[in-house]
């Protein structure tokens, strides 16, 4: 039986801007189970990243989070920064998209990794480097001693991302949140990083949350997928269910826009298919379903009545008026 490790209930994230309040995430509820890999997909601006920045208290100054995110019986959103510091970097770690700007440019890699152990495991300055070296060697990073003496700008993009992942694994966390870990990398390096995450999933108890807009990455790695659109969850299902039988028109649109080598690309014109239109302005949300203006199967009530997220067959949850429609 799946045992939840992280539970979000009614999570909302809002930003105060000079132009008004922007609701980046609205009424989001989900659970992450022990040892599971949960994929979060959606376009840019769908609230994927903000969800987890909020959970770790890393929102920008003008952002506020509401609702609850429960980990080990405590609501992370209620904790002080000081309390959060005992959890983040230790029990829950996060890696970011851009490892070049995400690493401190003027610190050697060894110091940046070592300080995690010093902060969370009380290691001394002299003991930390050896532990760091052990882990880096275990991750099969070539020439580890030399790499740890380097500064971030001296490493390749893939190496930086692997260092970032190593940094997140030092304390053997319960949850690793990977926010678009492969987006900034070229394809061969992507494969290396995914291999690393895949190995992590196989060999440790760490649960993984993979935030991405790359459906291929999700298919290869995740157990369950959650699709977000305009700050809300629109569909959630086991990875196979979602890929073979997508229910929400948005999910279908996403899957259809994946380029495939096997079939005639898209339609006969040789163009890649795309979802027409733009995601809605988060300050000025349509009254009904947020996807209605772009939806191919739109009905009259979609424009006035927002479809509730309901439990469907199996593990699926869906927010769409087209009942099990095909």
């Amino acid at each position: 039986m799946a045992e939840p490790i992280l539970t979000a209930e009614g999570l909302g994230v809002a930003f105060e801007t000079p132009d008004g309040t922007v609701r980046a995430v609205t009424d989001l509820s989900f659970t992450l189970n022990k040892g599971e890999c949960l994929g979060i997909v959606g376009e840019s601006g769908s609230g994927k990243s903000q969800t987890f920045l909020a959970a770790l208290g890393l929102l920008a100054d003008n952002g506020t989070a509401s609702g609850t995110v429960t980990f080990q019986g405590q609501n992370l959103l209620d904790l002080t920064q000081q309390k959060l510091n005992t959890i983040r970097g230790d029990r829950i770690t996060m890696i970011f998209q851009d490892a070049l700007t995400g690493l401190t440019p003027h610190m050697r890699m060894g110091d940046q990794l070592g300080e995690v152990l010093i902060a969370h495991q009380g290691l001394t300055k002299t003991a930390a480097p050896q532990r760091v070296l052990d882990l880096i060697t275990r991750l099969r990073i070539p020439d580890p001693e030399k790499r740890l003496r380097m500064y971030p700008h001296e490493l390749s993009g893939g190496m930086r991302q692997r260092m970032m992942i190593a940094m997140a694994l030092l304390c053997e966390p319960d949850i690793l949140i990977a926010d678009e870990p492969t987006t900034a990398l070229d394809v061969t390096i992507q494969a290396q990083v995914l291999h690393l995450l895949g190995g992590l999933k196989k060999h440790t108890k760490t649960s993984i949350i993979l935030v991405t807009h790359d459906l291929g990455v999700v298919a290869g790695l995740c157990d369950r997928v959650m699709v977000m659109y305009a700050g809300r969850m629109v569909e959630q299902a086991l990875v196979n269910e979602l890929f073979y039988d997508p229910k929400h028109p948005y999910t279908r649109g996403l899957l259809a826009s994946m380029p495939r080598l096997t079939d005639d690309v898209g339609d006969k014109t040789g163009r890649l298919s795309a979802i027409p239109g733009q995601p809605p302005n988060l300050q000025d949300m349509p009254g009904g379903c947020a996807f209605a203006p772009r939806c191919a199967a739109v009905q009259a009530r979609c424009h006035t009545e927002r479809p509730p997220l309901t439990q469907r067959d199996g593990m699926r949850r869906l927010a769409c008026h087209l009942e099990g429609a095909s």
Binding site: L58, G89, E115
Partner: peptide, 11 residues
Amino acid sequence: NYIRTAHAKGL
């Protein structure tokens, strides 16, 4: 970004 990373490390 690297300051956000540092916060995420729990420093």
